[in-house]
């Protein structure tokens, strides 16, 4: 039997809008910067980079970005100073601070200066994508952010999902897991990244895999019952990948 695709299927585009989002990565460590750029480009973003304070300042003063990933410890100056400058100039665009310091003071200062989020290194790329998506959804897409995966449609703001026209019933955590995997569609998501994102970093790391697995099992069952054309693959010992 051949399954007929849903008529409102809009393809594999993550956004239902066809805007190309422009992201600036301000990061001095070359390997880190390359990793970020590669991963963001895979998602279809246009990515530019700056590796020090002055280069970053030049770029943010001249161009407009939808999202800026900002490292605090930069050669030539403090990233927070860049942030202050950016806000003084009244520039639009979301700012996510990406810091290795993980210091409460920096976090509070950064958020007070108008940063949209704070991500402490090290982080999983999956988490970065979720954060970027979240700030873009809030600040740029004006709610036009439904995710379509074949016949599965997910609305992250109103928090519903449906297969074709049939609504699915999830509990809060199941929806969070699905959304996180959907945002990171076709990308391997580490089990810890998923566990920390959905249950917070308080989760016990020791048996997180078993625990996450039991949640995934429920989710798979529901997706299957509704005939959703997505699959959650387990990648042995590492995590999960949602393919559509």
């Amino acid at each position: 039997m051949v399954k007929i695709p849903a008529t409102d299927k809009t393809g594999l585009e993550i956004y239902s809008s066809n805007l190309v989002m422009k992201i600036l990565v301000i990061e001095d460590e070359q390997d880190m910067r390359n990793g970020l750029v590669q991963s963001l480009q895979q998602e279809g973003y246009t990515v530019e980079t700056a590796s020090n304070f002055d280069a970053a300042l030049d770029k943010i003063m001249v161009y407009e970005y939808d999202c800026i990933l900002l490292d605090i410890g930069l050669p030539g100056g403090n990233g927070l100073e860049l942030l202050a400058q950016l806000k003084r100039e009244g520039k639009d665009g979301s700012v996510i601070i990406v810091s290795a310091k993980d210091s409460l003071e920096d976090k509070i200062t950064g958020l007070n200066l108008g940063a949209d989020d704070y991500l402490a290194k090290p982080f999983h790329m999956a988490e970065l994508h979720a954060r970027v998506r979240s700030v873009l959804r809030r600040n740029t897409l004006n709610g036009n952010s439904q995710i379509t995966l074949n016949n599965l449609l997910i609305d992250p703001i109103d928090r519903w999902a449906r297969v074709d026209e049939t609504p699915m019933i999830f509990n809060r955590k199941e929806f969070d897991v699905l959304l996180y995997l959907a945002i990171n569609k076709n990308r391997l998501v580490h089990k810890n990244a998923l566990a920390e994102h959905v249950w917070g970093d308080r989760i016990d790391e020791a048996n997180s895999f078993d625990f996450v697995y039991s949640q995934i099992k429920n989710l798979r069952k529901k997706l299957k019952e509704h005939g959703a054309e997505v699959e959650i693959q387990a990648v042995y010992g590492i995590g999960y990948k949602l393919t559509a």
């Binding site: 390997d31 290194k121 090290p122 391997l188």
Partner: peptide, 23 residues
């Protein structure tokens, strides 16, 4: 803070590269 910076960035890079490899 420096110790954090010095350790966390290489950790971040290693984790991200290995994940990318697995992917």
């Amino acid at each position: 803070e420096n110790a954090a910076h010095e350790l966390q960035t290489p950790l971040a890079i290693s984790i991200n590269k290995l994940e990318s490899l697995a992917d």
